[in-house]
């Protein structure tokens, strides 16, 4: 498999009627209510729109902690060129790197979108 084929991509929908971009894939448009949506691949690059740090382990279930135990992680929204802001886990060496609309790149799509800071 080539690197291009294995690269993760987020799938969304674009409304045929008003052009609004939805994530995740949607049957109907939140903006205009029409029901003809085209599947699209969303940008792999974006900027951090807002974030916080999850300092305590969420309740399990439903949370499944990593095999080597919970460590605080950053969560926020990544603004894509399509305009939509996607909730994601944010990878970084230091949480301060996420300040100032930091550029990020998609690294995974499951179980939720993950982006990492672009060095």
């Amino acid at each position: 498999m080539s690197p291009t084929e294995s690269a993760p991509r987020l799938h969304g929908s674009r409304c045929d009627s008003c052009g609004n971009v939805a994530f995740p894939v949607a049957d109907g448009c939140q903006r205009c209510g029409q029901q003809v949506m085209q599947p699209i691949e969303l940008s792999e690059h974006g900027t951090v729109w807002g974030f916080t740090v999850q300092r305590f382990a969420p309740k399990s279930p439903p949370y499944v902690p990593p095999a080597d135990g919970f460590v605080p992680f950053a969560v926020g929204y990544v603004e894509l060129s399509e305009g939509v802001k996607v909730e994601a886990v944010l990878e970084c060496a230091d949480f301060a790197e996420l300040e100032g609309h930091a550029p990020v790149r998609l690294t995974a799509t499951v179980p939720v979108p993950r982006f990492e800071v672009v060095a």
Partner: peptide, 20 residues
């Protein structure tokens, strides 16, 4: 279901992101 597994079903995160 992935949002629960990943630890994103936490209401306090929203408030942290918004006020930050």
């Amino acid at each position: 279901a992935g949002y629960g597994e990943a630890g994103l079903m936490v209401t306090t995160q929203f408030f942290g992101i918004k006020i930050a």
